[in-house]
Each structure stands twice: as C-alpha cells, then as structure tokens.
Design a protein around this nucleic acid. Sequence first.
DNA 1: ATACGGCGAGAATAACTATTCAGGTTTCGA
DNA 2: TCGAAACCTGAATAGTTATTCTCGCCGTAT
Lengths: 158, 158
Amino acid sequence: MQQVRQVPKPDRQRLIASVVGRRRVGSQHELQDALRSAGCEVTQATISRDIRELGLEKSRDVLGRPRYVLPERGSRSDPRELLEAVLAQFGLRAMQAQNIVVVQSELGSAPAIARALDRVEHAKVVGTLAGDDTCLVITRDGAEAKSVAAELSAAIGG
Amino acid sequence: MQQVRQVPKPDRQRLIASVVGRRRVGSQHELQDALRSAGCEVTQATISRDIRELGLEKSRDVLGRPRYVLPERGSRSDPRELLEAVLAQFGLRAMQAQNIVVVQSELGSAPAIARALDRVEHAKVVGTLAGDDTCLVITRDGAEAKSVAAELSAAIGG
DNA sequence: ATACGGCGAGAATAACTATTCAGGTTTCGA
DNA sequence: TCGAAACCTGAATAGTTATTCTCGCCGTAT
C-alpha cells in the first residue's frame, strides 16, 4: 500500500483522545471528519482499532445522545492492579510444581494473565508461557514458586 | 399485533439491569438469549430501547471484550442536578422580559431544558414552553422572572 | 542482497445497534 | 361506551462498528 507521509499512530491516538475530551463525538464517522480537519486522513476501520486501543467507551451525554468518553484512570495504568483484576475475574487456581506455578483460568484468558504477569516484572518470575486456559509461571526454585503460587492464589481468592 | 401475556416493561427492565449487573453481556443478542432463558421473549429492537432507557453504557472488561455496564448513580436521580447539567452544557443565555424568561440554548436542547425545569417543580415557575433552541419560562410577575433569570444565568455561566 | 516476520493500514464485509413504520393495547375524557 | 391519544412492540431497514483479508513497509537474520 502506498504510504504517503502519514500521521504516526501514537500521534493520531493522542489526537483522538484530545478531540474526544474536548467535544462530543457520537460516531466514528464524526471522529473521522474531525481528524481530517486536523490533517489526518484515515479510514473508519483504523479509528475502530484506535478506539479499542485507547479503551474509549461509548456513553451518552445529558440529552441521551451517544458520546465517546475517555476511560476512568486507575487500574489500566498500574500493572499490579491489572494483574489483580484479571486474576480475580478469570483465575481458577494456582498450583506449585517444583520451580513452576501452573495457573488454571477461564478459557481464553491465559494470555491476558501472562501478559499482566510480564508487565509486573515480578522479581521471582523468570518467565511465563500461556496456552488457552493455562498459564505457566517459571521461577528460579521451588521456594520462590511456592511463594508466587501463594500470592497468585490470594489474588484469585479475593 | 397479538399481545399474548407479555412480561411488563418495568419488570423486563429490572431483569435486564439484574442480568447485566451479574454477568458480562457483550451484545444485545446475548442479552436477548438471557431474557429468553428467564422466560421473556422480546426482539432486539425492544432491547435496544430498554438499554437506552436504562442508560446502560457499552464498556469493556479487563480482556477488552465488550460489556454493557450500569450507569454511575448520581445526577440522573436529582432533578436539580440534571437541570444544572443540561444548562451548563447547552444553555447560551437567559433573559427576562416582563413576567417571562427566555432561555436561548443549542439547537435541539430546549425541550430537554423545559423538561428538566418542569421536573424541578420550581415554586416561581408557572410553566414552560420549548421550541428548538428557545425555552420560555413563565412566572407570576416581573420580580419572580428576574430572580429566575438570574438563577438560570448562573447555572449557564458555571 | 534476499528472505522472513511483524506491524499497520485500507477495502470489503460481517456483526451489531438504532430507527422507522405500522399495528395492537391501554388510558382517559366526554 | 365510544373515540382519541399515548404507549408499546415487532418487522424491516438504516446506520454504525468490528473483523477479515490483503498488501506494503520496515527490521532482522540468513
């Protein structure tokens, strides 16, 4: 595809966040127009993807008209909180076996758990490996694995 | 249309709120299935209308999957706050003329302002009448009109 | 240099949601 | 009781958003 001097994605997404924060935007088409006015021509498909990546939500203004809104700040910024949230919602149990911890979770959520674990950069976690409903957490030795398993179990429990 | 012993609307909407509050519902079709399981058969069109009336928002869960969520409680319950919100967002100016107050507002928002005013049941307001971008507020005399105009202007200003 | 792999994007299309239209029901007065 | 109006709903359809498929543009490794 002919790439002709486009606005880089991070800039575009910042632009979107800025526009949405300033005035009511009720549809992706409308947002597309706004971006065009700002000299950024993209298709609706791209905007849809940006909106997902930014975590924008479609809410309503006081008159009940649709409106995209920026997400509440909080959990999404702190990796630790994200891990807690994902485990609480999708984790089933965490078991230690030698130097690894096996985390069972709802089908499809294991990659998210692995990603969340990676982002935390836990000192005792050497690496992770996710299937569909199972996430392996590798630690250095059995003692660390035991500690991590307890930690994860706690997050799953409550 | 043959109306054969349906679940009443208020009950259905409570049911929707309950279902949405309990588990993730990612689409109206999904919600339709859930309602059917609960013995309530309705079309997607009806569900769309219910969702609007309940003020539900379409957000995402931790994994980024779509999910309807109940609105934050607050402004929608207090008529006074709603009036403030609508005026702050759409009001342009309020002027007194004899015993009436003329409120200029963004195109299309006057009916919402009139409705909000009615719901407040302000002691000095006898009645309201809305066009598209103008809302007339009737009071008993010039003094009351002046007071109301000041009040509304304040709400518009900040 | 060439091949491979990942990322980002557009076009087309599928999936999903809102609205319009029309018909039936209930409510409220006269 | 008899309209008349407001309300509620389903069917069809319009409008909106997500996804699939494909391709070009880099990095990196061969």
